[in-house]
Each structure stands twice: as structure tokens, then as C-alpha cells.
């Protein structure tokens, strides 16, 4: 520890007197940005390099040899490919189901005052705080009785539970942000409650709902613990596969698979750029 400390101190010490100069203070935000960039992007960058590394030995800054040789290894592995397929089949279904059962509830939370409203809202938060490992036995028993273990629907069910929070809180915030007059005006001209919801409320709320859907999808897609419990060994999704790859295979393999696993998230990130910038995300996090 002391070797690092003294070495760093030597280098930093010389810079300290810059503090008094305004120029330094003005560059401070840039330094902060740079530091944060290194912290956030660094690990990802190293991962990307590993995915394309043939050979990489310390202390080389870049891989000694760039190669794509690990990619066929990943794609050639049957269980890996199966896990990719499974992920792509469960996550969208989970998101849709989540929307169907949660959006009406979110609307109720936003518009109606009923006893126990806050308690219910919080229960969604607290239920997710119970460690899933602790539930293994009970869930396993329950799912065994219902013949859901290692099945598609069992995995869908357990992933669904993880998305409830996003699909209720963010839409509830969005619905609450829509002024009541807009809905009352629709009823005033003759639209029933249901029609008002579908033709007025939903279209106006759509950006916020899409953000919620985005997070629900990511939550379902990245869900590992519950799927590990319910799905293995027959039904494995990508995150669960990742555990195995990280622990049992050489680094580049894990790196390649990481890129594959991150791809849907990044694609959605690019698509949702506009929505996120409009502040729908932050709006959803208010209560």
C-alpha cells in the first residue's frame, strides 16, 4: 500500500499548487469527467479488448494478438446457443405480460385514493428485498407441485415478479403527471371510462410507458438468481449461462459472451435515447 501511496503522492504533490489558479478550477469538471469516464468505461473497454484477444499477457497495454478465434467457440457451444434462444423467447413475453397485469394497477395507484394504497405500493418494493436464495425451498416446493420447475412458464413467472416494480412505479408516476382535465374532458364529450383510457390516457402516457417497458425488459433479460433456481438445469437463460462461463472457461470466452448479452440492452439504449433525454425516466422515479 505504501509503495503506491508514495509514488502517487510524488506525482500529485507537484500539481497541488495549481489549485490556486483559476484555470485549474475551471478544468476541474473536465477532470471529474475524465475520472468518471475511466471508472465507468474502463472495465467495459477491457472486456471488449478481451473479446478480440488472441493472446494477451501482462504488462502489454493491448493484446499481443488480435483474433476472432474465441467467437466460434462460443457459437459452437450448443448450450450457449440454447441459452441465447431461451433468453430471446422469455424476456419479451415477460414484458408484455407484465404490462397487461401491471398497467391497470398503475393507473389505479395514480388516480384513486383507497385505503392501504401506500402500503401496497411499498409491498412491491419490500417483497423484492427478500433474498431469493432464501426462498429456494419454498418456491421449489411450490413450483414442483405445479409442475413448473425447469419449464418455460416457471421461468417466465419468476422473471415476471422482478418486473412488477418497474411496471407499476414508473407508469404510476407517468399517469399521475397527466392532468385530470384531459380525461374529464373526454368523459364530458361522451367517452366511457374504458374508451378514455385507451384513446386519451394511454397515447399521452406512451413515452413514459415505453421507458417502463424498457426497464422491465432489461430486468427480465438480466434476471439470474431466480432463473437459476427455477430453470436449471434444463432451461437456462443467458445470464445463468454467464455464471458457468465466467467460472469455468478462459477469459476471452466470458468476454465474447458478455458482448452478446449486452447487445440487446445497448440496442434498446440507442432506441430509447430520445425518450430518456425528455426526462421521462426521472419523472418515473418521483413518487
Amino acid at each position: 500500500m505504501t509503495a503506491v501511496a508514495s509514488a502517487l503522492r510524488e506525482r500529485v504533490g507537484g500539481l497541488l499548487w495549481f489549485w490556486s489558479i483559476g484555470a485549474f478550477r475551471r478544468t476541474l469538471p473536465w477532470l471529474f469527467l475524465a475520472g468518471l469516464a475511466v471508472f465507468i468505461l474502463g472495465p467495459l473497454l477491457s472486456l471488449i479488448l478481451w473479446a478480440f484477444a488472441g493472446q494477451w499477457f501482462y504488462p502489454a497495454l493491448l493484446p499481443d494478438e488480435f483474433s476472432l478465434k474465441w467467437w466460434p467457440v462460443v457459437f459452437g457451444n450448443r448450450s450457449v446457443v440454447a441459452s441465447i434462444q431461451n433468453s430471446l423467447v422469455t424476456a419479451p413475453v415477460v414484458t408484455l405480460l407484465s404490462a397487461v397485469i401491471c398497467l391497470p394497477a398503475a393507473y389505479a395507484f395514480a388516480r384513486f385514493q383507497f385505503p392501504g394504497r401506500r402500503a401496497l405500493l411499498l409491498s412491491f418494493l419490500s417483497a423484492n428485498s427478500f433474498p431469493k436464495i432464501g426462498l429456494y425451498i419454498s418456491i421449489a416446493t411450490l413450483f414442483y407441485r405445479l409442475h413448473l420447475m425447469t419449464t418455460y412458464w416457471g421461468v417466465v413467472l419468476i422473471q415476471l415478479v422482478g418486473t412488477l416494480l418497474f411496471m407499476i412505479w414508473i407508469p404510476a408516476g407517468t399517469f399521475r403527471g397527466i392532468n385530470r382535465s384531459l380525461e374529464e374532458a373526454a368523459r364530458d364529450v361522451g367517452a366511457s371510462g374504458l374508451r378514455t383510457f385507451f384513446q386519451i390516457t394511454l397515447p399521452i402516457a406512451m413515452p413514459g410507458l415505453l421507458v417502463a417497458g424498457l426497464f422491465a425488459f432489461l430486468a427480465a433479460f438480466d434476471e439470474a438468481q431466480g432463473t437459476l433456481i427455477v430453470g436449471s438445469p434444463n432451461y437456462i437463460t443467458m445470464p445463468v449461462m454467464m455464471y458457468t462461463l465466467v467460472l469455468n472457461y478462459p477469459q476471452p470466452v466470458g468476454a465474447v459472451f458478455s458482448i452478446l448479452l449486452t447487445l440487446p440492452s445497448l440496442v434498446l439504449l440507442l432506441l430509447a435515447q430520445r425518450l430518456l433525454r425528455q426526462g421521462y425516466l426521472a419523472a418515473g422515479y418521483t413518487l
Binding site: S181, L182, A185, I200
Partner: peptide, 10 residues
Amino acid sequence: AMVFQRFNLW
């Protein structure tokens, strides 16, 4: 038929 103070038009 009602005209509200704000947020009338969809």
C-alpha cells in the same frame, strides 16, 4: 359540456 381552466385539448 364543460370548458376547463387548463388542459382542455388533447
